[in-house]
Design a protein around this nucleic acid. Structure first.
Lengths: 223, 223
DNA sequence: CGGAATCCTCTTCGATACTG
DNA sequence: CAGTATCGAAGAGGATTCCG
């Protein structure tokens, strides 16, 4: 052990002792949509370095945030997943993401991008009141990557992979998906221009956007 | 400049580019209760090293989170304070603190402690519904350090220093204050044993605790 | 004395190469 | 695929010195 610590009797300092190191919260982000293999994590965290990833996984396993599991046959591969304690980091991750959205623009030349980074965030702007009477499962295929969101009883659950029983399947690319969430592109427009395709109820995309779209950014005086 | 970046087009990664470095969020914590001088910050961040503090302050000033100000006479000293953008980190700081509270115990031998670290957190567990009809200003003196909380219209504002017009003044030590917040010590008990003293309405301490006490910790299975 | 800049040592990071 | 080993580069953290 002998991890570095701030040695402060303070809840924030304790949290940062555990998840304050470089890459750690990004690693948690990768796991929020479900279990991942070592290789998937390396791909989702460009430039992390394989030794650091191994270090972080060991450390997070040690404090009970991450669990190593072997998938049942036929997969049989080793995966890492969040424990209950790890999942409880989600509100903090969402708050940080909401704050960091102010710095999202511009998109720099060397920036890596991944559909899952945007899909995982949709619950951060979920509007329960807009989904109160809804019961629907959306499968999203963004740049070919499958995700799904299940709306039920005013709650939303999201995960990577195909849905078992989707009511509707939306196929689109990441730029269009971001455009829809930021309301720069209307569902009608996206469908009309062939930037999105819906299998099932064509109005479902409209509902999806109403539930998950980002609120208008407030004005800042950052100086 | 040339700060280190994750180079990911992702709101969380952008946030961590800005506030993910060591000490940064603790520095923000120090400023959440109001402006502080360089020396105060050094005292509140044991072992930070004076060069790192200067680096961090410059960095945070550069991105518009912190502002350097000179207090009006007669003080005339230079202080650092949060900008609007900096204050918007409060929800994320509170979420991290709520999560980190699971790791608060035990209190280790070498741990530094400061009353402000606990006072600043009381709004993280503020119960607006319990304060709906209340309009009251508490001055707390914890281990001799003055703070105050102003309740009005279901909202709470907190700050360091003496209140201009306190309805009540509570004098206590940090252990008792923590005991009251964690409900290990009842207000009656604290007053009866002389661990807390109230100038003004003796029932005010009871109301303070009802508004700000921590919820009972949920059970965990961290393994 | 408060507010830093400099110097030096130690740890951590990150890239690549290598192994079961 | 899932890691371990290695090594130069960058960052952390004390101590000391400098400046107003």
């Amino acid at each position: 052990m002998a991890r570095r610590s701030y040695n402060q009797y303070c809840a924030l300092a304790r949290a940062l002792d555990v998840i304050g190191e470089r890459w750690t919260l990004l690693l948690v982000r990768e796991l929020l949509l479900g279990p991942r293999r070592y290789k998937d994590l390396l791909d989702g965290l460009p430039r992390i370095g394989t030794n650091l990833l191994a270090d972080r996984l060991r450390g997070l396993e040690g404090v009970g945030i991450v669990r190593r599991t072997v998938l049942p046959p036929p997969a049989g591969s080793a995966v890492y997943e969040l424990t209950e304690l790890g999942h409880r980091l989600e509100p903090a991750v969402f708050e940080l993401g909401r704050w960091g959205a102010h710095f999202l623009q511009p998109r720099n030349a060397g920036d890596a991008v991944d559909p899952s980074w945007f899909f995982v965030s949709i619950r951060a702007t979920f509007r329960p009141e807009a989904a109160a009477k809804l019961r629907e499962t959306y499968e999203l295929r963004i740049d070919g990557m499958p995700f799904h969101a299940r709306i039920d009883n005013g709650r939303a659950r999201t995960s990577q992979g195909h849905a078992a029983d989707p009511d509707v399947i939306v196929t689109t690319d990441l730029d269009t998906f971001i455009g829809l969430l930021s309301q720069d592109v209307s569902p009608r427009e996206a469908l009309g221009r062939g930037r999105a395709r819906v299998e099932g109820d064509q109005m479902a995309l409209q509902r999806f956007v109403e539930i998950f779209a980002w609120p208008a950014p407030e004005a800042f005086a950052p100086a």
